[in-house]
């Protein structure tokens, strides 16, 4: 990975997951795994977030919340689907209330499999997301540059 230009902030939301991946996401921010070493801070505010870590298979009630959070985040942004439920629906796929995967509602950039996803895998996913974020930012900068000239 190339060097980071900015400290990306992270937003976490539980879109009908079992909690397993959520506590693993939180565990990532604590001393043993410590994603804060990449300059990442876990924020609760979508308006300040660059990375959306989202878990669970999305049910009809939280669909609107997920969309709203995604829209509230400023561009450029990346979405990381954490856990197999967030990727495809996982064991909850057959449930009557589950839409099956975050990508049925919002675009997803990185998929982190696992039930529950291990912290190492989540960190790997976040680091991949950082690269994508940097690319997207580059894209925006070029786009903005053309606008000025």
């Amino acid at each position: 990975m190339k060097k980071l230009a900015k400290s990306p902030w992270l937003l976490h939301y539980d879109a009908s997951s079992c909690n397993g991946c959520d506590i693993e996401v939180l565990a990532c921010t604590t001393p043993k795994y410590d994603i804060e070493r990449f300059g990442i801070i876990n924020t609760g505010d979508p308006f300040q977030a660059d990375i959306l870590l989202i878990t669970g298979g999305v049910n009809s009630q939280c669909e609107q919340v997920v969309k709203q959070l995604y829209e509230q985040m400023p561009n450029p942004k990346v979405v990381v689907a954490v856990g197999i439920c967030a990727c495809t629906g996982g064991v909850f796929k057959d449930c009557y209330n589950i839409k099956g995967g975050i990508d049925t509602v919002i675009p997803v950039d990185v998929y982190v499999p696992g039930c529950a996803a291990r912290p190492q895998a989540i960190i790997d996913g976040v680091v991949k997301a950082l690269e994508i974020l940097e690319e997207k930012r580059q894209g925006y900068r070029e786009h903005a540059g053309k606008g000025e000239s």
Binding site: D14, A15, S16, S17, G56, G57, N59, Q61, C62, V65, F92, D94, C95, Y96, N97, I98
Partner: peptide, 14 residues
């Protein structure tokens, strides 16, 4: 409530 409802009790039938 209902943001995390998945319907797991129903899943027992299948």
């Amino acid at each position: 409530i209902g943001f995390v409802h998945r319907g797991l009790e129903k899943l027992v039938e299948t």
